[in-house]
Amino acid sequence: MELRPGLKLKSAVCSTEIIVVGGSGDVDVTCGGVSMVEPTAEASEATPVDGLTDGTLMGKRYTDADGSIEVLCTKPGDGSLGIGQTALALKEATALPASD
C-alpha cells in the first residue's frame, strides 16, 4: 500500500480504522497481522494472527521504531497495529494545557 498522510485504512479483521498521520512509501500496514484495506473494501472474513490481538484505542497514535510512520486510530478494535508482522508502539501524548 502506498502510504500518504491523510490516507484512511480499515482493518480486515476487526472494527479498527486509522488515518495515516505521517510516513510515505510502499508500506504494509497491518492490523492483527493482516494487511489493512481501503475503507471502501468489502468486509472480509480474515481472522487475526495469534498474539496480535492487543487491540487499538480511539484517538491514540501509533508509531514504528524510528518514528517515520505514524497513524491515528479513529475507530477502536481488537487487532494490534503493525508494519508487516512488527507491532507499532502506542505513542504517549505530550500533555499540553488548553490554549484556545
Binding site: G6, G59, L96
Partner: peptide, 14 residues
C-alpha cells in the same frame, strides 16, 4: 492538513 495538524499535535483526544 494545517488545522488537523494543529489539533492532533496539541490536543489530546477526549
Amino acid at each position: 492538513k494545517n488545522l488537523t495538524g494543529y489539533i492532533l499535535g496539541s490536543v489530546e483526544y477526549m
